[in-house]
Write a protein that binds this DNA or RNA. Structure first.
Length: 453
DNA sequence: ATCGGCTCGCGCAA
DNA sequence: TGCGCGAAGCCGAT
């Protein structure tokens, strides 16, 4: 079995449709024209059937928790992707609507429909609905995890230490980059079915009836070209220092690939190869693989196997019990959600983190932890802290609404972690404090920087 | 500056 | 059944 076949699952038992007009790739998660195994699988089918390829993207104005910040970043990437798809000789169709419905409708003329993979519950449901209603073979191709989730482990893992050996064991079978397949039949004229012109982004954004309260991020551009530029400078300047430099909140040596990964504008496998082939030192490369393979895919393992990945009740029992035992501990100050969201607490470090999040749509990972842990201390109940953390994550972060968002928020409350000495409010759940920040970093420089954003 | 103690659940050796 | 050990913890002692 070749590497593409190992990433592919049939979602129904239908056969390819006879007398079809094209092969359809319904693009959803892997929003890129290169390093995309779903696209190559669809190209393979197109050549095999002697048909042209249509790539469909459905822009859903009702996508859960999406606002104009997310759509802007996504459309910056999609405009580039549409062009690159067309240059390969496939048609790129962009439609407004509910993704599986539009895919079923367009798919009536398709011999085969290929989908990429998503992990959150609505993304799984979309693929199931498509497979049930398509009336032809529907395949799903894993392109946004290096190791397909079931191949790494057949169950929900309790911690990185149990997941790590499993994902590393499976890794060698999934290291081949998808081979680029040339299309034999060009798709002239088929792209006439679009109802959105991605080249005119402002017009496209205006068509969306969505939340406009969070402005687009000025400092980070979406799309593959921006991702590659950012990656190149990371590989040259930061990867060598990544080993022990990645946690510094002021002198940052991080790649900031998470927004691009979230929208599938870059593939985790191409990042893996870029980093392991890079110069520098072993420390940096090892640490990066730990983040991108072990940590990132542990988050995918979590949302895949924990049906209630976005519920407080899915936290480990020991964590819920200890938080429950301390729920009536006095809090120094309890803030309203409005005060929190505006960054108006008495903790300047916390406010600075909130500001970085609001303005840049991103937060350094160490400050994500501090921000989230303090939220437990600044709210009345851990349930409310959990809901607030998810709400703010998904509203402001360009990389929010991701498997990582749910795993990272749950980590704040003990997921994938162990018990620690019992303290007020937190119980045995790991805590973080301002004194810890001061001990490790020039946190005043961080505050000055954030306030200048 | 560095170290031990605190603490939980898993996986593995015995 | 016991033991070692783990993503970033904190605190107090040296």
């Amino acid at each position: 079995m070749d590497s593409l076949a190992r990433r592919t699952t049939a979602l129904n038992s239908s056969s390819p449709r006879k007398n079809a007009a094209f092969v359809l790739y319904w693009m959803q998660h892997s929003q890129r024209a290169e390093a995309n195994p779903a696209l190559e699988r669809a190209a393979m089918w197109a050549n095999e059937c002697g048909l042209p390829l249509v790539v469909l993207f459905v822009l859903d104005p009702a996508y859960p928790d999406a606002n104009i910040r997310h759509y802007t970043f996504m459309l910056e990437g999609l405009a580039e992707t549409a062009k690159a798809v067309a240059e390969r000789g496939a048609a790129f169709v962009c439609r407004l609507g509910t993704p599986p419905d539009v895919a079923v409708q367009i798919g009536r003329k398709a011999a085969v429909i290929v989908a990429d993979r998503g992990y959150l519950r609505h993304l799984v449901a979309w693929r199931t609905a498509l497979a049930d209603e398509a009336g032809c073979l529907v395949e799903m191709v894993e392109g946004d995890a290096i190791v397909p989730v079931e191949e790494a482990s057949g169950k929900q893992e309790t911690a990185a230490r149990t997941f790590r050996p499993r994902v590393h064991d499976a890794l060698p079978r999934f290291l081949d980059m998808p081979r680029r397949i040339d299309l034999k039949h060009k798709a002239d004229g088929l792209d006439a079915q679009s109802d959105i012109d991605l080249a005119d982004r402002d017009a496209a954004l205006e068509m969306l009836d969505c939340d406009r309260s969070v402005p687009a991020v000025e400092t980070v551009k979406g799309g593959r070209a921006a991702a590659r530029r950012s990656l190149d400078s990371f590989l040259k300047d930061d990867l060598p220092k990544y080993g022990d430099g990645r946690s510094d909140i002021v002198d940052r040596h991080v790649s900031v690939m998470s927004p691009y990964l979230h929208f599938g504008q870059i593939s985790p496998l191409e990042l893996y190869h870029a980093v392991t082939d890079a110069g520098g030192n072993d420390d940096g490369r090892k640490a990066y693989v730990e983040e991108m393979l072990v940590r990132r895919e542990l988050a995918i393992n979590f949302v895949h196997y924990a049906a209630d990945y976005d519920s407080y009740g899915t936290l480990p029992a020991w964590a819920r019990e200890t938080l429950e035992a301390h729920k009536d501990d006095p809090r120094e100050t309890v803030y309203t959600r409005r005060q929190l969201e505006a960054g108006e607490t008495d903790d300047p470090y916390w406010n600075a983190a909130m500001r970085e999040m609001r303005v840049t749509g991103y937060l350094h990972n160490h400050m994500r932890m501090y921000w989230g842990k303090r939220l437990i201390a600044y709210t009345k109940t851990p349930q409310y802290a959990y809901e607030t953390a998810l709400y703010l994550n998904n509203k402001y972060f360009l990389d929010g609404r991701d498997a990582n968002s749910y795993a990272n928020v749950a980590w704040l409350f003990g997921l994938h972690d162990r018990g620690w000495p019992e303290r007020d409010v937190f119980g045995k759940v790991r805590t973080m404090t301002a004194s810890g920040l001061k001990r490790k970093f020039d946190v005043d420089a961080y505050v000055t920087w954030a306030n200048g954003l």
